[in-house]
Design a protein around this nucleic acid. Structure first.
Lengths: 248, 248
DNA sequence: CCGATTGTCGCTCTATAGGCTACAATAGTA
DNA sequence: TACTATTGTAGCCTATAGAGCGACAATCGG
């Protein structure tokens, strides 16, 4: 119908740009044809289903379906007439819409982080009661460690028995595991073992982000996922370990 | 393996939030399972393929494929070990990445707007030469009109003949068509016809956005898609039409 | 009234996601 | 060292959505 445009070979850069845009559109939820058609409409500014089919190089009858789908998704506009003339929603408008949607969605997602593991109302330091729960939490911290895992405890036997494999696994994936224990107590696999007298409580720190302090029998503990607090505790232990034994 | 979490019925609002997030993730290019798995990992903070399969409520063996796919797409992390422990990339990080990508892509797309129709280096006013090209441009403007189409010309016969159907079509889709012509000259279908002496050139304005001024024989024209310029011209014509005939 | 254009419908074909079973590899354990 | 459970991989089958295509209905211009 509209034979306005002389068909000529495209410059390579232009073709590359189109590929680029097409892959973006596809990754943002459009199908192959939908991406092609929207791009074609933007390039042409407007056009009938037929025009679009030619520009996008797709079968004519597919253009109708795809344009309909794009209209539902809010990518194109049309207002009656025969033949129907379609207009693209301006790219920047769509971008703004999608960005807004994503900001909202990912914000929500972020607020759900870890809500499957810690329960109760948000606090700086959570209290976990019961040996079973405390042990489970320590196991979780071991699994979650990416870079560094620090454990200091007067009684390692139980932790050692229950979590031996978790310790091994952490080491295997490259986590630096530090264990502080009383002299001549059996310790789990670790990259670094420190012997020290007078350990009073069990302390666990993971990746400078998550920290736990428990009573010796592990019946109750405080737990925080505040990185500043965790890093602060970590720092505290570093200092106390550097000090000569006697001076406590 | 990790039977840490007591399965309990979820609160409705929490379930709704999840639906919300899932649909967002799906619209941003993830498959059903990929969305579920990423959400599950975020909720749990970390986990093995098995853990994830349970939380996301999908078959165990599918979890491996999906986690692999998500890793390629940059949604999750893992570092060796057996079993392999996976970590989600933080939602806000992914959001930033996607937003940046979209800003870039849609910016590019925007720069391609209409590059199929106007050629040459960008200018405020393009010059179009040759009756054929000028006519084609006017036809294009008629097709593109959404709200308003304004045409003023001393010689309407040819435009009338060639574009009769386009005029009809524009009216049908609700465009307000104004035609200014010499007295007792046949005019095309229009919502408003104004008769006026002494028309010197052909002027076309579409939706206050695009404007064209051509010589009477349509052999050459100036054309702009600058909305301010177009609106300015439109305003100019309004004033000139309001003036009594004699006072020119 | 007739031919051309425009738009709709429904069918097949194909690629991909999902689901499942079997089995290989590894690790813990007797 | 052998046995068993866990973890991970491979392959195949099915369901679904997109793509391709022809038939045909609706509308329009002449």
């Amino acid at each position: 119908m509209n034979a306005t445009l002389p068909r000529r070979t495209e410059s390579t850069s232009r073709a590359l740009e189109k590929e680029d845009v097409l892959s973006l559109l596809k990754r943002t939820g459009l199908s192959d044809y939908e991406a092609k058609v929207y791009l074609a409409l933007v390039l042409r500014s407007h056009g009938t289903a037929e025009d679009v089919a030619v520009t996008a190089d797709i079968p004519r009858t597919s253009a109708y379906k795809v344009l309909e789908a794009l209209k539902k998704k809010g990518y194109v506009n049309s207002r009656g007439g025969r033949p129907v003339v379609f207009h693209p929603i301006p790219p920047l408008e769509i971008r703004d819409r999608m960005v807004a949607e994503m900001e909202r969605g990912f914000q929500l997602l972020d607020s759900l982080r870890g809500s499957q593991t810690e329960k109760g109302s948000p606090q700086l330091v959570y209290t976990i009661m019961g040996k079973e729960s405390v042990m489970a939490k320590i196991g979780e911290m071991l699994d979650m460690a990416r870079e560094r895992f620090f454990l200091s405890s007067p009684d390692l036997t139980e932790l050692n028995n229950v979590f031996a494999s978790k310790f091994a696994n952490a080491l295997k994936r490259g986590v630096h595991v530090t264990v502080v224990a009383l002299p001549s107590v059996k310790v789990p696999d670790a990259s670094e073992v420190i012997r020290k007298q007078d350990l009073l409580a069990t302390d666990v720190i993971t990746d400078y982000e998550v920290a736990l302090i428990a009573t010796p029998d592990l019946s109750i503990c405080g737990f925080t996922d505040n990185p500043f607090l965790a890093a602060h505790l970590d720092n505290f232990f570093q200092i106390s370990l550097d000090r000569p034994e006697g001076k406590r």
